[in-house]
Simulated scan of single mutants.
Amino acid sequence: MLRNLYNWTMALAARKSAAWWLAIIAFVESSFFLVPADVLFVPMVLAKPRRAYLYATIATVASVLGGVLGWLIGHYAFETIARPVLTFYGKLDTFDSLAASVDWKTMLILLVTSGLAHLPPIKVVTILSGVAGFSLPLFILSAIIARGARFFALAWLLNTYGEEMRHFIEKRLKIISALAAAGLIGVYAVYMLH
Results as ranks from 00 to 15, higher is better:
Ser30Ile: 01
Ser177Thr: 15
Ile127Glu: 04
Leu116Ile: 06
Gly183Met: 01
Leu86Tyr: 03
Phe33Arg: 00
Val64Met: 05
Ser97Phe: 15
Val125Met: 15
Ala13Gly: 11
Ala13Tyr: 11
Arg172Val: 08
Phe152Trp: 09
Ala14Tyr: 02
Phe41Leu: 06
Lys16Ala: 11
Ile122Ser: 12
Pro36Arg: 02
Thr106Tyr: 14
Ile109Pro: 13
Ser30Gln: 02
Gly70His: 00
Lys105Pro: 10
Ala155Cys: 09
Ala146Ser: 09
Leu34Pro: 01
Arg51Glu: 02
Phe168Lys: 12
Glu79Tyr: 10
Ala155Pro: 10
Gly66Ile: 06
Met10Pro: 14
Gly115Asp: 12
Gly186Asp: 09
Val28Met: 00
Leu184Glu: 00
Leu65His: 14
Val64Pro: 05
Ser101Asn: 09
Ser142Lys: 14
Phe78Cys: 01
Met44Cys: 05
Leu141Trp: 08
Ala56Val: 01
Ile144Cys: 05
Ala18Gln: 07
Leu184Cys: 01
Ala181Phe: 10
Ser135Ala: 14
Ala182Gln: 04
Ile185Gly: 05
Ala149Ile: 05
Met192Pro: 07
Tyr161Asn: 04
Trp71Pro: 03
Glu29Trp: 03
Leu138His: 15
Val42Gly: 00
Asn159Ile: 11
Thr80Glu: 11
His194Gln: 10
Leu46Met: 06
Tyr55Ile: 02
Val187Gly: 06
Tyr55Val: 01
Leu69Cys: 11
Val131Ile: 05
Ile169Trp: 10
Thr60Asn: 08
Ala18Pro: 07
Ala11Cys: 04
Ile24Gln: 02
Tyr76Met: 14
Glu170Trp: 09
Ala181Asn: 08
Phe152Ala: 08
Tyr6Ala: 03
Leu12Asn: 15
Pro36Gln: 04
Arg166Val: 13
Ala56Ser: 02
Ala132Gln: 14
Gly183Asn: 01
Gly148Leu: 08
Ile176Asn: 11
Ala77His: 03
Tyr53Leu: 06
Ile140Val: 09
Arg15Ala: 02
Val131Asn: 03
Gly130Gln: 02
Pro49Ser: 00
Ala143Met: 12
Ile73Gln: 00
Leu40Ala: 04
Leu141Phe: 13
Ala18Val: 12
His194Met: 14
Val102Cys: 04
Phe134Ala: 07
Glu29Met: 03
